[in-house]
Write a protein that binds this DNA or RNA. Structure first.
Lengths: 332, 332
DNA sequence: CTCCTCTCAGCAAACGCTTGCGTGACCCTA
DNA sequence: TAGGGTCACGCAAGCGTTTGCTGAGAGGAG
């Protein structure tokens, strides 16, 4: 592959001149410039990012460390991230956290060894040390999706409290008085927030909190099945239920059917988290769709902003999910 | 960040010795070795991949160029690729082809500029030049998912002919005589192959080919709806239908319901391509599940093999999908 | 005619590593 | 005791860029 030296020789100039015309980093006489450009053309010179990185210290690349399996919106998220990064001249390197602390540590290390300029990270559950290490090595990072107020880093994620509250309001407005909640796993801040939102929504609708109406602590399809099954046994059973994530929505939906409940008529289900099949079932599932694209893009923007100016205080951006209205809420 | 020089100074040895203990590239006296290791520990030295790359010429990275949006199994595929690559000490760089020729060209260029050791590529429709350019610059590449016999490169993808034939056999064995086929988009080799397999299956089952029973040329949910609608208007309408891809399966499923057909009883639907909600509807959808993980892993393996030995003839690996049996085929 | 100021461009020192080549030190055999 | 063979390790030349410094020449002002 052609190097700057080849170009320089062909154009009859020094290497530094070639560098300067390539980077437009100092003025070069028009004639010279043209000779260099012609030489570049002829040699097919493309530049060596590696060598450049060695001297500049930057790599124009960002690392993305998340669970490549556990995130249901991974493709969409990655797509948004890649697009935004590419637009800014950055390349995305991948690191799989495997959704646990060890994998996360390994992924972050690997990305650091690759000298990424910055990182996007969806922290694994139970992680503590990685974030510290990240801060210590001062590789700029922004947390995606799983936001925590304990951390002094840039963060982006979905807004959970108001949006869940909205879900409650929506159901209450349709006349429901007994609204169940199937919550997510305990250790996640998002779950707590959604539970809080649920409570808040109840209050706004003038309904009483009843711990019998809250089931959960899971994340899988099966968890959703079991949770709804339990909710359906309580006295004065709920006529509507809000689920904490996509998989559990599916489970609950299925279980409701299995109980012979007519979804959208006598029983309402609304979910948190958009799922791609929400439209394919009948009735379709009303959900709070997370602004996945927007989250991805914002994450990259925050990172680039930090790269540009490392000294601004960390920012936390909460993006509001949008209520996507389908049949399962039965509000017509 | 700590450099080899820092380590060397601290351990009281030369840089080259540090390099040799890090890479285990020549024997070092036990005592020295330990001092070096201690120094590495103390300095937190991690190695600089950039500098190493500059001298070795390799980057220990592979580029993945595909449409980050269009591929329904992206997450799973990327996960498999990343895992296999990481196990071999490689890092994955992403390039989005946007599923068209221009994007593809840009993605490949970008990855080449990053000096990836090799590339995994899912060619965009209508592409021609990129593949040639790829061959010319001799960056090793393997084609994923969209296999073409016109190309002399390593390739991995799903087997289409036999597997579609199997689908037909399955339906025929359940007593269906009029089996429809909703084919994919024309320009894709896979569609042709599946159509061929459909025909082959008919022959094997002793059924006649009837062009009225073939609809399609699409890829979306809507295409599936329309195709099935058309099939249901033909005289002696089909009692079963095979769909060419996941989205169209959904459309067909929905349309069948809309027509009041009882899926799994009077009407059978089987799909090509696993979809993650296949289990969530009732009856579940019987599909030919593509071995996505295996495809990803094989792709990386082929690439690494080629990196190790560039002179072996290109290999094409076709991986057989697996029939995942659920209710929609009605065969009990 | 001298001195200054510009413009244009080359020189060479990094950047952090790998690796071929050398050189002591030591031990063994003849 | 000399010659040969091993071991352990250091030296220094790159790898392809970027960039601070320097210098030559041209033109203008005094």
């Amino acid at each position: 592959m052609a190097t700057m030296e080849d170009v320089a020789r062909l154009a009859g100039v020094s290497i530094s001149t070639v560098s300067h015309v390539v980077n437009e980093t100092r003025s070069v006489a028009p004639g010279t410039r043209e000779r260099v450009i012609a030489a570049i053309e002829k040699t097919g010179y493309t530049g060596n990012v590696i060598a450049r990185s060695l001297v500049t210290g930057g790599t124009k690349s960002i690392g993305v460390a998340m669970s490549l399996l556990a995130n249901p919106h991974l493709a969409q998220l990655i797509h948004a991230i890649e697009a935004e990064a590419t637009a800014a001249g950055y390349t995305v390197l991948l690191g799989d956290t495997l959704d646990h602390a060890d994998g996360e540590r390994a992924a972050v290390r690997k990305l650091q060894a690759r000298r990424v300029d910055g990182m996007l990270l969806t922290p694994a559950p139970g992680d503590t040390t990685t974030l510290e290490q990240l801060a210590r090595t001062n590789v700029p990072a922004v947390l995606v999706d799983r936001v925590s107020h304990k951390v002094k880093l840039d963060q982006v994620g979905p807004e959970n409290i108001q949006s869940t509250s909205t879900l409650v309001s929506h159901l209450a407005a349709a006349g429901h008085r007994r609204i169940g909640f199937i919550s997510g796993v305990e250790w996640m801040g998002a779950s707590e927030e959604r539970t809080l939102g649920y409570r808040l929504g109840l209050g706004r609708a003038g309904l009483r909190w009843d711990s019998n109406l809250v089931a959960g602590g899971g994340a899988t399809h099966e968890d959703g099945v079991l949770a709804l099954r339990r909710l359906l046994t309580v006295p004065e059973r709920p006529t509507a239920v809000i689920t904490g994530n996509g998989a559990m929505t599916a489970g609950a939906y299925r279980e409701a059917r299995a109980h012979g409940l007519e979804i959208g008529k006598e029983f309402a289900i609304v979910g948190h988290d958009e799922v791609d099949w929400a439209d394919l079932v009948d009735p379709g599932i009303t959900t709070m769709a997370h602004p996945v694209d927007e989250i991805g893009r914002t994450a990259v923007r925050l990172l680039l902003a930090r790269l540009a100016d490392p000294d601004t205080p960390p920012e936390t951006v909460l993006l509001a999910p949008e209520l996507v209205h389908r049949g399962s809420c039965g509000c017509r």
